[in-house]
Design a protein around this nucleic acid. Sequence first.
DNA 1: GCAATAGTGTCTCTCAGACATTATGGT
DNA 2: ACCATAATGTCTGAGAGACACTATTGC
Lengths: 251, 251
Amino acid sequence: MLGVTADNHLTDEDRKFLAGYDPHAFPPAAVTVDLVILTVRAGELCVLQIRRGEPPQRGRWALPGGFVGPDETLDEAAARELAEETGIRAGAHLEQLATFGDPGRDPRMRVVSVAYLALVPDLPTPVAGTDASEARYLPVAKLGGTEQSLAFDHDRILAEGIERARAKLEYTGLAATFLDEPFTIADLRRVYETVWGVPLHAANFRRKVLSTPGFVEPTGEKLATGRGWAELYRRGATAHLHPAIPRPAAT
Amino acid sequence: MLGVTADNHLTDEDRKFLAGYDPHAFPPAAVTVDLVILTVRAGELCVLQIRRGEPPQRGRWALPGGFVGPDETLDEAAARELAEETGIRAGAHLEQLATFGDPGRDPRMRVVSVAYLALVPDLPTPVAGTDASEARYLPVAKLGGTEQSLAFDHDRILAEGIERARAKLEYTGLAATFLDEPFTIADLRRVYETVWGVPLHAANFRRKVLSTPGFVEPTGEKLATGRGWAELYRRGATAHLHPAIPRPAAT
DNA sequence: GCAATAGTGTCTCTCAGACATTATGGT
DNA sequence: ACCATAATGTCTGAGAGACACTATTGC
């Protein structure tokens, strides 16, 4: 096991050094977090977008995000932004995605943006944040046209977020974070089909999910669906699936 | 296909806004890149470390890294640091790992570090960079003791880098980037055994590698080894392996 | 010959994919 | 009765793991 705690004890030399240290000696940058917030609603994978209420690029759609506070960790800033935009404070999945810092990606100054990926259950309605005049969930299938392109380099961030989400469904139990509990195996299968954009074999999917230990936990309850009924499940404890859920090649 | 190019065209409103914009309005931070440079030498997975030549934490071992220049992309800064520390300008694998920005991780000021992972072939001898007084390749098996703990939060960065490298060998052809060309199947197997720390079944490994299209390309040459001979191969063109190389559970 | 490593052949077990069948309950 | 969906059972092919065996060359 590797040590994972930083030992930041200061030596006497460090103290002397810091007393005479000028923080303006290095090229300054602003640090932001931008969020790719994905959900499944009405059979479509959707991403939360905010219409910018202030320059630059006012009126244009963008990913939600904001500056990192002086005393916040990056994870805390991302969790705060997620709560501000969606009202979600717990239960969602939130992970760091990648960092984007090309010079000129923001015309104001050097801005380094740490992108996060959030997977959330279907929400009642978007809550506009302080900076935002409007919010929407856009199906990712509608992306691609120049009409829909986002501000700054957010198209690229979004593309990486979607690809990360698709990959993570293969080897983690994160698909269940898109669902409210309890859910049926068919609900879970529809999440996979929606995110991957391919139909899955219902019988094989069921066998695979139930034979993977810790993926889902049976509640013992049954739900009357349209025709017939279905058993209900909760999220399992296992984060890493062994073996993985095979992802068919995209059509 | 999603658009991946940022459209940063400025509106007239943007220009007016920027003319009156004060870059000091947001909490400033310094942005650095830190590199986890891994190689395989003498049957051990090793990481390049630099002994800090200046405060803070002078004399302590750390990962190589440095500040991102005002006109550099993050990738360019990482490639520059890699070249400065190792002399390598091409051929190595370099990818963004994760970003670390806890307040207080560097006593000087708010420093956000974008960590990169580099996989390089065995090198003649470490070249000390400008800021460094000393450099070494430390086998990662020797990590873990407090004696070996690195400056700042570099232990944590290193742990993530090692885990990323181990995972990537499963589903990419990156193992070959640890080797000079041409190499034998046994050389490649020893890379896997070294990085994963487990013995692999030689016959099955060979069958797996050769049946995976695009993993390695035969040269047709044969090399006289100590006893017997072995066929020689080059890196294949395929980045993503299908199916993956199964990774046995750690002992 | 013996030792050590490279390479080939084959068997078995697991599991994904495909298909068939039954059960359920609303229309 | 009919239909859509849930759930169960069975067959097959691909592939991983294990083992036996041959080939080559230095000692």
